[in-house]
Amino acid sequence: MDPEIIIPADSAGRSGPPPPAAGHLTRLIENEALERLRMLRLKPTGRFTNKSRGEHVSGRRGQSNDFSDYRNYVSGDDIRFVDWNIFARLHRPFLKLYRQEEELHVVVLIDASSSMMFEGKFALAQSLGAAFGVMGLCGMEKVSVFAFNSTAASPLYLRPCRGRSGMARLFRFIESIESGGDAPVDAAVERFLKNHSGRGVAVILSDFLTFGELVRPMNLLFGAGLELFAVQILGPSEIDPELTGDVRFVDAENGRTLDVSSSGDLIRIYREYRADYERRISDLCKARGGRFLSLASSDPFAWIVFDVLRRRGWIE
């Protein structure tokens, strides 16, 4: 390693959460939190569901127990769905309609590039990815995970799995993700969509720090029938940096350098620009029916999941 490159101490040696303690199912989520997660479900605003039957109630008429509407009986209808109570009162047959329960595909995209190796960003992304996966699996949704780190290497992909039995696969996959690389989030989304089918929810856990444009991947996700849950994870020093003297910044992903000298206005302009950058991503998501949330890597996991996400209506 170049001796002049300063690597934060907490990001130099590990790429994910610490190993699980004895008696814990995974090192990503505490057992107590896991128990609470099993009671929660994703709450998408859109109805991006698949035709295959599932446990997620869709807008279409179907065979679930949830009543939807009545209609006149026509010849050929299955008489098992005639509402005999109404027939007894009105002497006319009416067909009772029910909602269709369809399957929701929950896709978790985890940014494992080098930019996530700072200040516990990647560890939080792993934990949140596992949390979203657990909620999907417990909701009998189809869950798949896509991790991208390097443009040169093949992306890591967990094929869709269902049910609580897939939880162990999910944890093993996420725990095995190696971080480090130059994959930008915009290119990774396009790469993911080439191999993806199915509608549902796409949870992107990234810092969204890319030189590319985010409009195109957002449009592609929307067009693919995926409701976007964008979670931006930034380190504390990215949110509120301190800068003294002359310094040469080195981009962790591509090695590019930038000479910066401290001045009073520079930090202020940085903060303004970062807030504006967040606003732009949020607007992009909202314009496509999605949601956006910016977090600090230092935020507690439990507070994020059981407080922030519930209050914002991401989960219920």
Binding site: I6, M117, T210, V247, R248, A252, R256, V260, L266, I269
Partner: peptide
């Protein structure tokens, strides 16, 4: 010889510096 400092990305700083040069 400036001290080198590795950061996650230059995305924000590059634009910030561009704005700062315009302002100053």
């Amino acid at each position: 010889k400036r001290p080198r400092l590795e950061i996650p990305s230059l995305v924000l700083w590059r634009q910030v510096l561009a704005d700062a040069r315009v302002n100053a």
